[in-house]
């Protein structure tokens, strides 16, 4: 998803900084971007979302400060283990909530001082309502969604915009072993285009496939007394 977004932004004429843990992978993405969009400039930075102490220093190395910061960090983790294992639980919470919140919080401060910028956070429909199959991942994403909502509220007056992305099912590496219903599954390229459009139009919250808005509105409207007996 991040790669598709980088391709889209490079194609739209943005220069890019790619930050991530796997620097070989970043370099391969960089080379691909340079073939596709030879006029853009692409830098790679080592960034470990889990190592929160390092975030400030990573952001300090960004020069100039970007116009847009998009955070695609997240992992499904081991949901079953996380129910009774503190390490597995921390991993899910940290990779989906604490890490992204920490780094975006630092970025937000810089954007606020500058008085412009757009922050994009990739959260999940799983955070809209806790379900028995993935409520730990879901609660981390719920926290992240709430964080983005609050951040948007705080930065509104500073001219900084925040986009929350709730992609629904996306055909990515993370889901390639699952059989997803095609009507509900977005391609990474479609997610990338939707995000680029949301940045341009300053949309607050996007579901990539509109059908997810309908689905989640219904799911959120089910009374808890009934919801607790359901298997979704």
């Amino acid at each position: 998803m991040a790669q598709a977004f980088a391709r889209k932004m490079a194609n739209d004429g943005f220069d890019l900084v790619l930050a991530g843990r796997n620097t070989d992978e970043l370099d391969a993405i960089r080379r691909d971007l340079l073939v596709r969009s030879p006029s853009c400039s692409v830098q790679c930075l080592f960034f470990d979302a889990m190592d929160m102490e390092s975030h400030r220093e990573m952001i300090d190395r960004l020069s100039p400060l970007p116009e847009v910061a998009a955070c695609f960090v997240g992992s499904m983790g081991d949901e079953i283990a996380a129910r009774c294992d503190a390490g597995a639980l921390a991993l899910i919470l940290r990779s989906n909530f604490e890490g992204p919140a920490n780094v975006l919080g630092i970025v937000a401060k810089r954007f606020e001082d500058r008085g412009s910028g757009t922050i994009v956070g990739i959260s999940s429909v799983a955070g809209e309502r806790g379900r028995k199959t993935n409520y730990i991942y879901g609660s981390a994403k719920a926290g992240f969604t709430a964080f983005l909502s609050g951040l948007r509220n705080q930065l509104q007056s500073a001219g900084v915009h925040v986009v929350t992305v709730l992609p629904g099912f996306v055909a990515t590496k993370m889901t390639s072993h699952l059989s997803l219903p095609p009507a509900l599954t977005a391609k990474p390229e479609a997610v990338a285009s939707a995000i680029a459009k949301a940045i341009r139009k300053e949309t607050n919250v996007i579901y990539v496939k509109p059908v997810w808005f309908v689905i989640m509105t219904i799911i959120k409207a089910i009374p808890e007394s009934i919801f607790k007996k359901m298997s979704l």
Binding site: S75, M76, K173, H177, L178
Partner: peptide, 13 residues
């Protein structure tokens, strides 16, 4: 970036 196990694929028609 996630560090999921490499999927072995799925049976499909």
């Amino acid at each position: 970036m996630s560090s999921n196990p490499i999927p072995n694929g799925r049976q499909e028609r």
